[in-house]
Design a binder for these strands. Sequence first.
DNA 1: AAAAAATCAATCAAATTCAATCAATTTTAT
DNA 2: ATAAAATTGATTGAATTTGATTGATTTTTT
Lengths: 250, 250
Amino acid sequence: MLTPERHRIILQLLQEKEVVKLHELVEVTQCSESTIRRDLSQLEKEKKLKRVHGGAALLQQKREELSVFEKSTKNIHEKQLIGKYAASLIQDGDCIYLDAGTTTLQMIPYIEAKNIVVVTNGIMHIEVLLEKDIPTYLVGGVIKKKTNALIGRGAIHSLQQYSFDKCFIGVNGVHIDFGYTTPDPEEAFMKQTAIHLSQRAFVLADHSKLNESTFAKIAELQEATMITNETDEELLAMYEAKTTVEVVKS
Amino acid sequence: MLTPERHRIILQLLQEKEVVKLHELVEVTQCSESTIRRDLSQLEKEKKLKRVHGGAALLQQKREELSVFEKSTKNIHEKQLIGKYAASLIQDGDCIYLDAGTTTLQMIPYIEAKNIVVVTNGIMHIEVLLEKDIPTYLVGGVIKKKTNALIGRGAIHSLQQYSFDKCFIGVNGVHIDFGYTTPDPEEAFMKQTAIHLSQRAFVLADHSKLNESTFAKIAELQEATMITNETDEELLAMYEAKTTVEVVKS
DNA sequence: AAAAAATCAATCAAATTCAATCAATTTTAT
DNA sequence: ATAAAATTGATTGAATTTGATTGATTTTTT
């Protein structure tokens, strides 16, 4: 049996069943495990399917991408709620800065305002923004591999070419004494600069970030409006004494 | 049995069965393996079928369903060869500008030089560069959706912060009178600027680009070394009179 | 948490298929 | 009719594909 014939059979079975076991394929094609494994490897490389333990699975373009960044996002549901609310704050004609990070990424699907312009330092954001036909500017700079964010001198310089109606910033820590913090000083400086360039600044922080603090300071609490989903009244009151807090309910 | 008759039989069998083994064809036509092999080679060259190990397969035009990845790769093989050669020109410690586009994208897997820095305006390039742990800077600017390239005033300004040992530029047309050209003036200006910022400039152009010209001029032929895979001696001599040409052999 | 079972990637040698070459034959041009 | 060109089939060693085997990894069961 020729290679393309096996490939055709594999893909066809996959279309019908969504997932297919290696053993089934061995049965159907009457050739060895090794051969099927090699076929699956190749087809995976060609982006025709996704290998899984025990066989292969269909990959739907969009569902696949979603699951990738679903994996990368703990507390996805909360982040989605926060993102949806934050997106509702954007108004027609706004110039927006979207900070890199998974929380701000969640905003994009919910953006409905027309005629806006978005500047971002998040490479992952680009694809989703362009899919929604939102005119997008990317700041220049060095790419931080771990977070796929643009940072550094070049990024700051590039950012300072703009000014914004609103900016949306992700943080790793929110603390009553230490303010908003994040582990990387370079990233912190990026976020700080964006806040200073914006008329209004919003910090997105799900409740796991509250009362936490990390190495590098971004800004004082009062320099930005905090958007969170924490519902504990006592904690809330404490922060509300220092800054504006908007709470998203589930 | 005459050649056209064999060809007709081969194609007809192929239509019916989608794939056909060499041995079947030997049986049916009653001629030698060698003859059938030659037939298959020729029919493949005429784009009537695709040879595979053990026989031949129908080539479906409905590659629409295929991934963006594959669509983006016309002349992939030639581009890979050119890319591989271009990558070999990069030396340890170089500062490189990589223009957006599929040809320069093909270079990245073959880059072996150590301690280099890459600046690019191609968003697609980033993922591959980071995978190879190459420190990467992205220029800022507005994102052109169609080509995933960063262009415009911001991009130019961002680019001018750097200078390069070498730059590698993709073009759409190479013409003895009109020089290097590309359809979008904004992109042309980006490429032009990069060339001016580089000690040495290389233009990557597979042979389908030769003797073509498009709207916006990038540079004169002599402003960059041309890397191509065209082998026609006469054509080659014509270009070599005007600029340095490096030919990649397959 | 440990053991068992299943699945995996990597490697190997055998079998198949391949491209390249050459001489014999057929076709074509003169 | 003769030489040149093209086509053919056989042969060669090289390249590819294949199935089996190995020990490692993952999943399931105990």
